[in-house]
Simulated assay, not measured.
Amino acid sequence: MTKTSTLPRGERSSATPGRRRAHPARKASGLPVWSIPYVLLIPGLVVIAALLLYPLVQMVTISFQKVGLLQISGRRPAEWLGWENYASIFDNDIFWSSLRNTVVFAVVAVPLTLILGTAVGVLLHRLGSKMSLFVIIGIMFAWAVPPVAQGVIWRWLFDAEAGIINWALNLLPDSLSSALFGRADWTGEPWLNDTWSIYMVLTICVVWAGFPFIAVSVLAGLKGIPAELYEAARVDGSTPWRTFRKITFPLLKPVFAVLTVLSIIWDFKVFSQLYVLAGTTNRDAYNLSMYAVTEAFKAPQKMGSGAAIAVVLTVILLIVTAAYIRQMFKQEEL
């Protein structure tokens, strides 16, 4: 005889194991689980919009306007000029010399920073843990120095009257100094008066301050490479340079890609060090950042022109970065 349950229908369904009605997973807040990551991103997106997007929109807007002290103080409304600010800067010879200085400086400084930083990173990887930590702390002091202080340090070193560089060059034997540099007396050499020597000092300053970050980043990447690969290369009789080309460099391509993009952005936007080294009197030594600040804040203030130069610099950086990343994806480096 078959027994039938006397429990009410609702109680039978709740008591039966393994039979649950399907419903979307929800947290105690009532939000679907899939939406929680997006909700958590909202505060960060709001901060980014407030700190980055809004100033960027304002900069682009000002680049099409005539904005000076009267407009900033609110005594006169901004006048819409259209493309006039861009036409005026493109017709100015200072813009093209600034663009040339910016590009040439980046072309020289970025590879030097990457090469020196990579060499130091490989050296740190081969040192013992204690010595490596000691060297890292030492080089990171240079990276931690603020940009203005970097400029002050190297301005003192290359000072014409009391700089240690002129003093050290005068210590060289006259014959050696003449053979290397074509002169024996370096007393009063004005390193920071000529555009070429200003950018030479600026390159040294930027590379000195930038290579520690590259070195530590490369060291972090090297720590992730299995030691067995180097052991196998050593057994096969591979030279250090061949090992670097065949093992280290291919495995660190993603790291080098990021470091290259960051270095390009940083070196294109150098301002503080150049301002301390050269000031604003030598217009031949301007880069785009210096030219933009001078146009915007030096009397008579033309903030619209300064914003237009900043927009052009931003577009150049976007084009260079996009082209480099596209090339990396083509080569399947990432």
Rank of each mutant, 00 (worst) to 15 (best):
V235M: 14
G237D: 04
R245F: 14
K269H: 08
T243P: 02
F256G: 02
L252R: 07
G237L: 13
F256M: 14
S272P: 01
R242V: 15
T260E: 10
F244T: 05
P250R: 12
S238E: 06
R245S: 12
R234D: 05
K246C: 13
S263R: 05
I247P: 01
P250S: 13
W241F: 15
S272C: 02
V235A: 10
K246V: 14
D267A: 11
V270T: 04
F256V: 09
G237K: 05
V270Q: 06
F244A: 07
P240F: 12
T239F: 06
I265R: 01
K246F: 14
P254R: 05
P250M: 13
L259E: 05
S238L: 10
T248C: 08
S263G: 11
F244Y: 11
W266E: 06
P254V: 12
I265V: 10
G237A: 08
V270I: 15
D267F: 13
P240I: 05
L252I: 12
W241K: 02
K253F: 08
P250H: 14
K269I: 07
A257L: 15
P250I: 15
D236F: 10
T243F: 07
S263E: 12
F268H: 00
F256I: 09
F268R: 00
K269S: 13
A257D: 03
V255I: 15
P240V: 10
D236T: 02
R242Q: 11
L262D: 01
S263P: 01
S263K: 06
K253R: 15
I247H: 07
I265A: 09
S272F: 07
I264S: 00
K246H: 14
D236M: 05
T239A: 10
R234T: 08
I264G: 01
A233Q: 06
L251C: 06
K269L: 12
T260Y: 11
T248M: 11
T243G: 11
W266M: 03
V255H: 08
V261M: 02
S238Y: 10
K246D: 11
T260H: 02
V255P: 01
F244Q: 02
